[in-house]
Amino acid sequence: MFASIRGVRSRAPLFAVLVVGLAGSAVAQDTPAAPARAPEAKPQAAAPAPAAAHMAKVGEAAPDFTLKDTAGKEHHLADLTKAGKVVVLEWFNPDCPVSKAYHTGDNVMTKLAAELAGRDVVWMAINSGAAGKEGAGLERNQKAVTEYSIAYPILIDESGSVGRMYGAKTTPHMFVIGKDGKLQYAGAIDDSSGRGAGKTNYVREAVSALLAGKDVAVKESKSFGCSVKYGSDGT
């Protein structure tokens, strides 16, 4: 997308355009199958710490939660699973330019949510920003609903407890939960590394596979975006 904005490069024939590999170029080089870095038990540890049982892990039961949306309505994950829904969670911050990019222009998030709506899929945004951090709080997110014409609920998780439970690191950070209540995908929205619409939208792929009763091909990827603006532990 940087390229798309650069626009006119009429001297192209005279110049060689190189994209420096910047190997490490962090996110861009991560393979979709790269293991997620959610906190995990150390291999040398005798047994996983009890707390690990409550942390989201792909292939295991998604941690249950109840959160209120910007209209005050409660959403309980277990109820949605009982109702046979595939659930998509989108970590969100209306003032993060990466979230913003997916909610303007091509409107990747809302379009995909609309495409999947009515197919036993429930899409919810979650804002785990602590009070006082940019993009956080009920009022700002009520405004975001209209600002970005978001048709799905934005859940407020100011304590950050649900975000921490899922290991949500960035906005956006996507999680897909199957009808069986198991976490089936965790990671980026797509393979763009935040620079333009990606070729593969991992969430669309995951949800489509689940609705078709198939295995999700890419279950984890490296998410990218602004850090989730958590408060200090225990708030």
């Binding site: 940087f2 910047l22 962090a26 620079r195 975006g225 989730v228």
Partner: peptide, 25 residues
């Protein structure tokens, strides 16, 4: 920086050089 990060986006440099010029790693 291009290292293992929990968040962020990578820096990106796209050189555009005269013909015959090349960027070394």
């Amino acid at each position: 920086a291009p290292f293992l990060n929990d968040s962020g986006l990578p820096l990106r440099l796209q050189p555009e050089l005269p013909e015959g010029f090349a960027v070394r790693p």
